[in-house]
Write a protein that binds this DNA or RNA. Structure first.
Lengths: 235, 235
DNA sequence: GCTACTTTCGGAACATGTTCGGAAAGTCGG
DNA sequence: CCGACTTTCCGAACATGTTCCGAAAGTAGC
């Protein structure tokens, strides 16, 4: 429980009392990236990572909080390297563009789903990764949203984005394992007639990527709601 | 602490060959419900459940697929007991009401978050739990949506709902453990000015429940998009 | 009763994330 | 050089979900 950032490993090895560190957080992150790149993120376990570095598994816990923490750090690194797209000037379009960038950045890493819902995820992001959030907030502000409305707009979009990524990241699993489609193909026509009527169309329709489309509809609805509601927020 | 020894399998028909079963899926579900009600769902482990029933842990796997499967079965039971609200006649209001019911039903069980994203979750629901889905689909259809549009409407709402439940179900965790709010309170004003300007307001604003509000905005946007788009679906 | 067959049971084992307690390896004051 | 102190390392252990495989407990045919 000593979050005091340790001094760099090589530049100041001596000058401090106590047993010298055998590794650094940066080295751990580098090794984790190597493992992910080589064997896939599913093979990234604490013990493997420790073995890769030639240290004890327990030792890792003195440099990272836990596996979730490690994944967030990794994600921050990857997201930080994404180049910022030029965002449209129109606030509505800007929100859509920024949210799409955020979505794509997270969806690119399957293991992001493991930590997306972790306690206050957005608050754990680096400043270099926060420009997406900042862009959405700024655009909502530009549009004329009040601070509460702005936060609501972002949170709503965030929920939608997280849900989409999580649901879609788990769906392909079963399709490879078993032969079940994402949705069952037969429904009781007497109890759920409309579902039964859709029948096997559902599976095909549910396979399409509708994130951008839904996002646009959502942003439209949110901004319309913001401008039509009394900014005072009659709670 | 074992109020249910093994006898009540007496009614099992003896016309079958092989070693007789010592338990049934129904008994497993009943024991699981008992454990959840008494000690909370976090205490529900495979070994505890087996011990409660006086059987070996491995035996459970001959009656259920795994823990996720067990949780889905449990959720189906609980959702099936929810009384169906009278839904408004207006399609838009009906979608909102049904989605809200769906959200509330899932949000009522913290462990629902554990299986919400499991492979084709909606397809695993019982017919007795599917009336919420059916209601949304039927309302979208009533509104004039084409089958693809109808599925898109439901899936969008589903993503939003799942995201909200998952994010909110994990947030309180850390607030109890540590003192971090859901979002960090200080941001670099030079890199993320708008976030910095919101500052500590964010934490308070993010604590509010905005699901119904966001849902209404989303449904408005989705239905507007559906009626304005060529039904042919120009991909 | 005995042998075959069928179905179910469950102990041992595995991999995982994580915690605990003490040993190890330095510095510092003498 | 030595003992005290500080900081870090890591083997052992724990709890979990899950899988393997042989033992157990029935029925069927003789």
């Amino acid at each position: 429980m000593a979050p005091s950032p340790p001094p760099p490993l090589s530049s100041a090895p001596h000058g401090r009392t106590g047993r010298p560190r055998v590794t650094s957080r940066a080295q751990i992150l580098a090794a984790a990236r190597r493992l992910i790149d080589e064997d896939g993120w599913e093979k990234l376990t604490i013990r493997r990572l420790a073995a890769e570095m030639g240290i004890g598994a327990t030792t890792l816990y003195h440099h990272i909080q836990g596996k979730d923490d490690l994944l967030v750090l990794l994600l921050n690194h990857y997201i930080g390297e994404i180049e910022r797209p030029r965002l449209p000037s129109d606030p509505r379009d800007r929100i859509v563009a920024a949210a799409t960038a955020m979505h794509d950045a997270l969806a690119a890493w399957p293991w992001a789903a493991e930590v997306l819902t972790a306690d206050g995820f957005v608050g754990l992001l680096d400043e270099s990764s926060l420009w997406m959030v900042e862009a959405i907030v700024a655009a909502a502000d530009d549009y004329g949203c009040t601070p509460p409305q702005t936060v609501d707009v972002f949170r709503s979009i965030w929920y939608y984005t997280v849900g989409e990524i999580l649901v879609r990241s788990r769906s392909p699993h079963r399709r490879a394992d078993r032969e079940l489609p994402t949705f069952r193909e037969t429904f009781d026509a007497s109890r759920v007639p409309h579902l039964a009527a859709l029948g096997d169309q559902w599976a095909a329709l549910a396979a399409r990527d509708i994130y951008p489309q839904g996002l646009r509809a959502f942003v439209d609805g949110l901004l319309a709601q913001a401008t039509s509601t009394k900014p005072d927020g009659a709670d």
